[in-house]
Simulated assay, not measured.
Amino acid sequence: MVSIPETTITSSDSRRPIPLIGLGTASATESTDELKDVVIKAIKVGYRHFDTATLYGSEKPLGEAIKEAFRFGLIKSRAELFMTTKLWCDSTKGHLVVPAIN
Rank of each mutant, 00 (worst) to 15 (best):
V98R: 14
I21Y: 10
V45A: 01
A65D: 04
V98F: 11
I4K: 05
Y47L: 01
I4R: 03
T10V: 13
V38G: 09
T84H: 07
P19D: 02
T8Q: 08
T92E: 12
I75L: 05
I4F: 02
R78Y: 06
R16T: 08
L35G: 09
S27V: 13
Y47Q: 04
L35H: 04
G24P: 08
K86Q: 09
T8D: 09
R71Q: 12
F72A: 14
A65F: 01
G94R: 15
L62G: 06
H95A: 13
L55P: 15
T32P: 15
S31C: 05
T7F: 12
A42H: 07
K67L: 10
K41R: 11
L23Q: 04
E30C: 14
V2D: 14
R71V: 12
L23V: 06
I9F: 05
P5R: 08
M1G: 11
P99Y: 02
L62H: 02
K67Y: 11
K76M: 10
S11W: 12
T7E: 09
G63S: 05
I21E: 09
F50Q: 01
A42F: 03
T29Y: 15
K76V: 05
S11I: 11
S91T: 14
S3R: 07
C89M: 12
E30V: 12
I4N: 03
